[in-house]
Write a protein that binds this DNA or RNA. Structure first.
Lengths: 146, 146
DNA sequence: TGCTAGATGATACACAGTCTCAGGTGGATC
DNA sequence: GATCCACCTGAGACTGTGTATCATCTAGCA
């Protein structure tokens, strides 16, 4: 759950025009607790009776990613998902049952990455760490319930 | 570069039948130094004059992944790739220019993952770390050469 | 208010991956 | 070596995700 205004402002600050479809997408994104796919955003917009083209959803998520208001992650089994997040380098722990995600910051991993770089001789420019498991709520909930 | 026999044996040991298409795919996979996509394997088979269906390539790579003879990784920009590897949990450092990859083992990351689990309350079942950069050869080679 | 660059929706397209199904074949058994 | 059948195959349809194109629309500036 994020402030829709923050997303809209991020776009505005970066010089993107503030259009109705962008506001709608920002609002839906902001209302999401966990990760979501482009298709889910399009479906929710349709469910709310808002007409937003599929291409526009992709374009808007792309814009939000550029301004670092959302992050694109790979999900196990292929495909992508997005998470609304703070604009600093970090990683996500994603609940594989309910989709809720939390952010963890970078500290020790950055050191680990540097050490791997030294050991392998590679000049490491990019890394991605994604963690999947069960959030506290889903651990407590009985198996299969959702 | 892996021993094609090792891949074929891994399939055999797991109870998979040893068919001509599987041997061909195993041979092509074994001949690869870096990562590769299913499409590349299919293309190389075609180039060698071996007829292997696209579905069969996917099925064989899937089987090889099951027996842990290859690992499926996500590449930046979406899509998947595979790397032939030893059957122990580890991660890959992939050269973003030539595609060559090296394996790094797990030690400190496992500890980091545990500590993230403790901190967030998540029960972490799965994690993936992928590192991208330039290998020593590509760092030495002039920009743009391949 | 008018203008224009940038945004839009519709649509076609590309591509990866999955599924189905009729026919083929590896390998166990005799 | 012959037989048999469960498993494997290729072909091709299908699905889902993401991109490209284009005519039309509109936010926001002068």
């Amino acid at each position: 759950m994020t402030d829709p205004l923050a997303l809209v402002n991020a776009l505005d600050d970066a010089g993107y025009r503030l259009t109705a479809p962008r506001r709608s997408v920002a609002e839906i994104v902001a209302g999401r607790a966990g990760h979501f796919t482009a298709a889910e955003i399009a479906a929710e917009a349709r469910a709310r009776g808002i007409h937003v083209g599929r291409a526009t959803v992709f374009r808007t998520l792309d814009a939000l990613e550029r301004v670092e208001a959302v992050e694109r992650i790979d999900i196990p089994g292929g495909g992508h998902a997005y998470v609304a997040c703070e604009p600093a380098h970090h990683h996500h722990v994603v609940c594989s049952r309910c989709g809720r995600s939390v952010e963890v910051e970078d500290g020790r991993l950055a050191a680990l990455v540097r050490s791997i770089g030294r050991r392998t001789g590679y000049r490491i420019d990019e890394h991605r760490l994604e963690l999947y498991g069960l959030c506290t709520a889903c651990q407590a909930a009985p198996e299969g319930s959702r």
